[in-house]
């Protein structure tokens, strides 16, 4: 099991205070810088490892940044504290985005990112809670995170500890039936402590979602399953913060975060082949420039 980096955690703590105290504009600037730094880490991890899921990593980066830097109540030095807010990345193929967000928050040393997918590394291609602090459950097969999040939310209610539970799914991932079974229980159980964020980048592995097995009208479907639905620009930091506020109706919250797969790098954005393509040396240089 990796362990926390105390000085990185301290830096993160003061940054968080700054974010929460600042006005909307300065908050957006700070969060954008954080997100871009995370994207640069992801880019390096993927080019070094020669594999990874860059498109989905970049679409979810802003969501992860907002959750960890502005919304969730977590302590990187005490990652299993019982009343923590819980975060589950159901689209586990975007492990690189999660690892770099966790490392930048001090859950483990940033230097560890250099081992991504190397032999015997804790940082596998999909996240493993047995080895990586901050990871709450092992994901990779799509459609597993939301049911586990529902159980976690029920548990937090039974313990009455005030913990909130956040889960991010891919939009293609919502084609898995297990998610809809979980949504039914979530609303039946009135889990107002649960927030499901759908990373709505409209692409899956092989094609657009609407050409493969259409999800629309996703908002109406989620509402019909009893969710309090919020539709938001998944790259607008202040709007995301607002969308991630607690439930106002007593129902679980579903946030449809409209995102761009590959966000931040022009030649990667919204292109299906970048689901798991690896940039060439030249492309890597250009990508670094665009992310700086």
């Amino acid at each position: 099991m990796l362990t926390a980096d105390a000085s990185q955690a301290a830096t993160w703590r003061s940054l968080r205070q700054e974010v929460l105290a600042g006005d909307a504009d300065s908050r957006a600037v700070t969060l954008h810088e954080r997100a871009q730094a995370t994207r640069r880490s992801i880019l390096k991890m993927i080019t070094d490892a020669g594999q990874g899921h860059i498109g989905g990593d970049f679409s979810v980066t802003d969501i992860l940044t907002v959750l960890f830097d502005a919304v969730m109540n977590v302590d990187p030095e005490n990652p299993r504290q019982e009343d923590r807010d819980h975060f589950i990345l159901s689209k586990g193929h975007c492990a690189a985005a999660l690892y770099s967000t966790l490392a930048h928050s001090g859950f483990f040393p940033v230097s560890e990112l250099d081992t991504f997918m190397a032999p015997l590394s804790a940082l596998n291609g999909h996240p493993n809670r047995v080895k990586v602090p901050g990871v709450e459950t092992n994901t990779g097969p799509l459609g597993h995170g939301l049911p586990v999040a529902v159980g976690t939310a029920i548990g937090a209610k039974l313990l009455n500890n005030g913990a909130r539970v956040f889960v991010v799914t891919g939009d293609g991932e919502m084609q898995e039936g297990s998610n809809w079974e979980a949504l039914m229980s979530a609303s039946h159980q009135k889990l107002d402590n649960l927030t499901v964020v759908v990373d709505r980048n409209r692409l899956q592995q092989g094609a657009r979602t609407e050409e493969t097995n259409g999800l629309d009208p996703l908002d109406a479907r989620l509402a019909a399953f009893g969710m309090e639905v919020r539709v938001v620009d998944g790259h607008n930091y202040n709007d995301l913060i607002d969308a991630l506020r607690p439930s106002t109706t007593g129902s679980p919250v579903a946030v449809i975060a409209n995102t761009i797969k590959g966000k931040g790098v022009s030649f990667i954005e919204d292109r299906v082949e970048w689901h798991h393509k690896v940039p060439s040396q030249e492309q890597t240089l250009q990508a670094f420039q665009e992310l700086s």
């Binding site: 084609q175 898995e176 592995q205 493969t212 097995n213």
Partner: peptide, 9 residues
């Protein structure tokens, strides 16, 4: 026939 990410189906 591509059913999407839905293996049971």
């Amino acid at each position: 026939i591509n059913v999407g990410i839905a293996e049971q189906n």
